[in-house]
């Protein structure tokens, strides 16, 4: 049976209808929801969407990505201003992994991207953006508007990755604005170059991981403000004495009670032992310094 006639899909009872939805990829689900108010309402009634995570990407292009669990299709919408790319579809399949990409042409990229973001998050009943990846020097004139849009429509962002495309661009102001207005709850990656040593972006509390490769602006006072489980700093303005003091306080559990892993880059390991760890009991394991708690 090839189902040649139009199929009355909404006449199915709820359970089979939900089975049909489970067999659809996210593109199908979203396209189906856009047919009418009724299909949208039916689509929203499905109860299995928690397995999907949503990623919003603001790069040179604007993207919305919907990931399922293992063996499920990942679908990515890319908004493009290049008319020739509009409607293009690409599929990338491997053994247990399948990725579908659809390019959508628009002469009003931001607005259409916003509309799709709202629709997707409404359909999949997400109050949180699972991953937000933002290139801070892309769509600069719209950056504040985009951040306000995210703030207005979602409670929080689980993982936030901040980039910049051109190293010489100063994106501090937008980074500060984002950190001030978006609640980040798990991972924060600063993959852009902070220009100002007095960068006063608010570092969220209770993060799982904070990754600051360009952390030359982190001084002792800022270090004391950080409250995360995993902290990775590659540069800093903290003196040897301050590191020594900090590590002693950490061992004595006088500060950073949530911190379980600290990674820093020091110019020379032996120097670090000599200048920072000279009066701190420690042992060397695999060339790295690890905190050893002794009772």
């Amino acid at each position: 049976m090839d189902l040649p006639k139009p199929f009355p899909i909404l006449r199915l009872p709820f359970v089979p209808l939900q089975e049909v939805f489970k067999a659809m990829d996210p593109f199908q689900i979203i396209n189906f929801s856009m047919i009418s108010k009724r299909t949208k309402a039916v689509t929203k009634q499905m109860t299995f969407y928690s397995k999907y995570s949503i990623q919003l990407i603001i790069d040179e292009e604007l993207k919305v990505s919907i990931h399922g669990s293992k063996n499920m299709t990942q679908c990515v919408y890319i908004f493009t201003s290049k008319e020739e790319k509009g409607g293009k579809v690409a599929e990338n399949s491997r053994k247990s992994w399948n990725k579908l990409i659809v390019w959508k042409y628009s002469n009003n990229l931001i607005e259409e991207w916003k509309q799709l973001c709202k629709h997707v998050l409404e359909i999949f009943k997400k109050q949180t953006i699972d991953i937000l990846s933002m290139t801070l020097d892309a769509f600069v004139d719209e950056k504040v508007s985009i951040i306000n849009f995210l703030k207005t429509n979602w409670k929080s962002v689980t993982d936030c990755n901040l980039f910049q495309s051109e190293e010489e661009n100063d994106v501090d102001e937008h980074a500060v604005y984002l950190l001030e207005n978006i609640k980040i709850t798990s991972n924060l990656l600063f993959l852009f170059d902070v220009k100002n040593d007095n960068f006063d972006g608010k570092i969220p509390k209770n993060l799982k991981e904070l990754y600051l490769p360009n952390s030359h602006w982190i001084g002792y006072e800022r270090l004391l403000e950080i409250d995360c489980k995993i902290v990775i700093l590659e540069k800093n303005r903290i003196s040897d004495e301050q590191w020594n003091l900090f590590i002693k306080k950490w061992i004595a559990m006088e500060t950073h009670l949530n911190l379980v892993y600290l990674q820093i880059i020091y110019r020379n390991f032996e120097e670090f032992r000599e200048l920072v760890l000279h009066d701190i009991p420690h042992e060397v394991v695999d060339g790295a310094v690890k905190r050893v708690l002794k009772t």
Binding site: L3, P16, L17, K22, A23, M24
Partner: peptide, 15 residues
Amino acid sequence: TSYCCERIARMLRGK
């Protein structure tokens, strides 16, 4: 049920 439903979903694939 599952086979029937996947058949319907297949009809909508790529559309």
